[in-house]
């Protein structure tokens, strides 16, 4: 309530004529124009260029970047043409696999970071303990470590010559893309897998680790101020009214932090999908480990800039969707505050 009133009154003040300074009007116009120009040059123009380049060969060219057919079998055609089609089909297949990999890695990282972030924000926000400041600094560490170094840390830990090299290089786990439903007949575990992967770095697992490392501050950091401001009283009240720990979390804690959580998830998702440095090191440049940003670079280096931009447009699209969600979230929050729900972010 209060916030809204304050905002309105200050808006009114800004809108009104200021008789003391006659120049207020043109100052406002100049500042606004400068802002618009700045955003235009540094945000809108590059973004528009991404889409322009992505569609530079028309819609069919755009689609071709993701779905390209190999050479028809049994049809005679010049060697060079045939090889070009093989390349295009293989490129498109790898692009699709990079999208799937990004979704898998990003989602896994976000799920982990939500669990970790909520736990960390909870611990830091609600309890006092020795070494708390140190813990907060450690949570912030990925912000200050270069992502490439982050990737190298995992290579140094889990690489063949690393600290846990012996164990890690022989660590076998199922390829998530090969997991399928085999049912319960005869098994207690209903999932089977066709493929096993070995090792940690240079496999999707390494990519997940690298991504989690560089993204873990996002959820925790966006939750901490809210959780801290929240205090413990509402939760204690819920407990005293007979709610279980889970009920308290689900019905009291979560609704209070939902906007902050959503915001953190959004930041975390964008970064997880867009991470390059850390992932680049632990991917071992292997095509099967490509995420969207790695793939964009490879396409660019294969002189296929249209396909690179087409793929990049997906990330740009994600950014736009994030912007949209943020808009809706802000609007919803304002609405709740106006209604008196007090959705404090």
């Amino acid at each position: 309530m209060t916030t809204t009133t304050l905002a309105t009154s200050s808006n009114r003040r800004a809108d009104g004529e200021n008789p003391a300074t006659g120049s207020a009007r043109w100052v406002r116009i100049v500042l606004t124009l400068a802002t618009v120009a700045f955003i235009g040059i540094f945000v809108v123009l590059p973004l528009a260029n991404v889409f322009a380049q992505a569609f530079s060969h028309g819609v069919s060219g755009y689609v071709h970047a993701f779905f390209a057919d190999g050479p028809p079998r049994g049809v005679h055609m010049p060697v060079r043409e045939r090889l070009k089609m093989i390349t295009a089909a293989s490129q498109a297949r790898q692009t699709r696999s990079a999208i799937a990999m990004t979704l898998l890695v990003g989602t896994t990282a976000v799920v982990f970071n939500v669990v970790f972030g909520v736990a960390a924000a909870w611990a830091v926000g609600k309890f006092r303990f020795r070494g708390k400041t140190l813990l907060i600094s450690l949570i912030d560490l990925p912000f200050s470590v270069s992502p490439v170094v982050a990737g190298l840390i995992f290579v140094l830990l889990f690489g063949r010559e690393g600290v846990f090299g012996n164990w890690a290089t022989h660590f076998k786990w199922p390829d998530p893309f090969s997991i399928y439903w085999r049912g319960f007949n005869g098994h207690w575990w209903p999932f089977g897998d066709d493929q096993q992967l070995e090792g940690i770095v240079f496999t999707p697992l390494g990519i997940v680790l690298g991504t989690i490392f560089v993204t873990f501050p996002f959820v925790a950091r966006s939750l901490m101020p809210t959780v801290e401001a929240q205090g413990v009283e509402e939760e204690q009240a819920a407990l005293s009214l007979g709610a279980s720990g889970w009920q308290t979390f689900r019905r009291v804690t979560l609704p209070n932090i939902r906007w902050a959580l959503l915001y953190g998830i959004m930041l975390c998702t964008c970064r997880a999908f867009g991470e390059f440095g850390a992932v680049s090191v632990v991917s071992g440049n292997t095509d099967a480990n490509d995420t969207i940003p790695l793939r964009v670079e490879k396409l660019w280096q294969s002189y296929d800039s249209q396909a690179a931009f087409a793929l990049a447009s997906l990330l740009a699209g994600l950014a736009l969707i994030t912007l949209l969600i943020k808009g809706v979230v802000d609007w919803r929050r304002a609405a709740t505050v106006r209604a008196g729900g007090g959705g404090v972010l």
Binding site: T107, W181, R182
Partner: peptide, 13 residues
């Protein structure tokens, strides 16, 4: 999101 990111979920062996 999790369900979507495991596209080959019901593939037979």
């Amino acid at each position: 999101a999790i369900a979507l990111s495991a596209p080959a979920f019901t593939r037979p062996a």
